[in-house]
Design a protein around this nucleic acid. Structure first.
Lengths: 134, 134
DNA sequence: TTGCTTTATTACTGATTAGTAGTATAACAA
DNA sequence: TTGTTATACTACTAATCAGTAATAAAGCAA
């Protein structure tokens, strides 16, 4: 991806996708957008992270995240509807767990991308700093 | 709602993540959430798709997507700030292109996941249908 | 110059949603 | 039974945001 020192030239190749160009209708894109929207709230990501080491009941999730009870309940419903977490009732407690580690793949990809951006940013900065040497 | 099946077993394995457990602060998660939020609007995904085959200027994007001019301009600004598209001015025209095909990786992952969910759903359905076979 | 085209910005409206207080429900204990 | 705990739901508020009309600015042509 776009060579560290991309600063100057950026005369990047067309970057046409080599992927098959299935035309995605706005309706299909809406489904994808809706999924991304579920992951676009830090509170929900907090809950996902809280479940990373294994299943937890709602009270444990509340304690781990520090979020309010009604709030956690609402977010869990949204996460469950999106198929990101699954629900198991045991007596009076309800346990939730990550349905598929796929969600961590997504988050790691985004983290890597953000990290790369920050690195490239700081490189540009240090290049700027070079002018000040002496 | 309440889950057609899953009722029975679903005694899935603990599904603890085998990944290193770096503790992510809410601030870090907010950065990830913000990135997902950029992709959580179908209009912006439409623009991303419009750029899949190569760079386009704003007018071309407007024609391809059918979105309003001010709207496209605003979305492009958001996409550029997130580092998803890059901007090149040429005379009076401004060309945008996908900065990294990484965004397509993300979308494909989500599409695969959604497809899998639909398949599993229809499998459950067909199992239900089996009861009706005389 | 005037006029046209392209893009960006501003101000506004309507819709969505996160968080919360209060309430409801269900399981369990005494 | 009563009381307690765990979870879900409802109604509300405040904030965010997509879309749009109007305007601005900049490049270019005549």
């Amino acid at each position: 991806m776009s060579m560290v020192s991309s600063s100057m030239v950026q005369q990047s190749p067309p970057l046409e996708s080599d992927r098959p160009s299935v035309h995605l209708t706005p309706e299909t894109l809406q489904l994808v957008a809706d999924f991304f929207k579920v992951l676009s709230e830090s509170s929900r990501l907090q809950i996902v992270c809280a479940l990373k080491m294994g299943r937890k009941n709602v009270t444990e999730i509340i304690e781990t995240t520090g979020l309010g009870q009604a709030n956690v309940s609402k977010h869990l419903k949204i996460l469950a509807q999106a198929g990101i977490v699954s629900r198991q009732q045991q007596g009076v407690c309800v346990y939730y767990q990550i349905a598929s580690s796929f969600v961590f793949d997504l988050c790691e990809l985004v983290c890597d991308s953000l990290l790369l951006q920050i690195q490239q940013q700081s490189e540009k900065m240090s290049h700027l700093g070079a002018f000040r040497q002496v």
